[in-house]
Amino acid sequence: MTTYTRPIDFKRGRVDMSHGSGGRAMAQLIDELFVRHFANDLLAEQGDGACFALPTGAGRMVMATDSHVVSPLFFPGGDIGALAVHGTVNDVAMMGARPLYLSASFILEEGYPLADLLRIVKSMAQAAREVGVAIVTGDTKVVEAGKGDGVFITTTGIGLVPQGVALNAGRIAVGDRILVSGMLGDHGVAIMSHRENLTFETTIQSDTAALHGLVATMLDAVPDLHVLRDPTRGGLATVLNEFAKASGHGMLIHEKAIPVRSEVAAACELLGLDPLYVANEGKLVAFCAGQDAETLLDVMRAHPLGRDAAIIGEVIADEHAFVQMRTAFGGRRMVDWLNGEQLPRIC
């Protein structure tokens, strides 16, 4: 005979210390929340880890991890749940891999409303379904009130690299073209304008999206793609500087060619930010040989997540590996590493 357990009250309930204690309350949370919504056989086994076979003939694998600590947890265009799936899927995809499985670790703050946690988990489950990856293992910890920021989520993903794909910064060569997959700065500005309570004519939405599909079509058309990266924290400028340093070459980009929404440009002006340094969650930067650039651009533009793709610059010989930009005014300047925080000017 099974004893009756009262279901968790996801309407009015809150996270308490017992949800992380390893006892009955935690088991119940795992069953009624995570196992139910992430619904897959591997997770349902509830082992200490997930055990699975690799497809036959599998070559190399990719493993990537990412912690998500966004505030606010819900923002225009997304929430921490969708972000936690997309972020790690994208890290896997940037290595040229097809994502297979995810793990998810939750750090919950005591007192956090279970209704909001449910919303986050459902959003995560939906994002994972859309991507076609299963969340197969996880962990839950609860910290005392005041010691967390509601919910922190760490996801780890693994994926398979198709034969013949070799993406790395070492392949960047002078003459390579630099492409971006769309409008820059949407995510960072959506978060910041929400935080600062700024409203513009239209609400700027986060661009959070999983890019593995776009990457697959790009690799189909141009298997010789040199390298990919998603310009998250630190934005395009940081990615370019990382690649310049890793490859030892300079870069020259053209301000006029860089796609930025006018609302985002206006918001950046107001907040004293430079869109080149603002975070994206659904964009990528690609490097390919000069002769492949037009083909790559065409397939990117044909994909829904690459409609606004553009060729923004090229790799140049420069022993100092500086990133330079030709401004809309026709002058040149450097696009440097971000130093410290961007401080507001007072004059």
Binding site: E255, K256, I258, V260, S262, A265, P275, A328, F329, G330
Partner: peptide
């Protein structure tokens, strides 16, 4: 940058520079 005013400004700037 797709910021219409700046395109226009760029041309004006070159005119002034000339």
């Amino acid at each position: 940058m797709k910021y219409i005013d700046e395109f226009r400004d760029g041309e004006l700037a070159r005119g002034l520079a000339n």
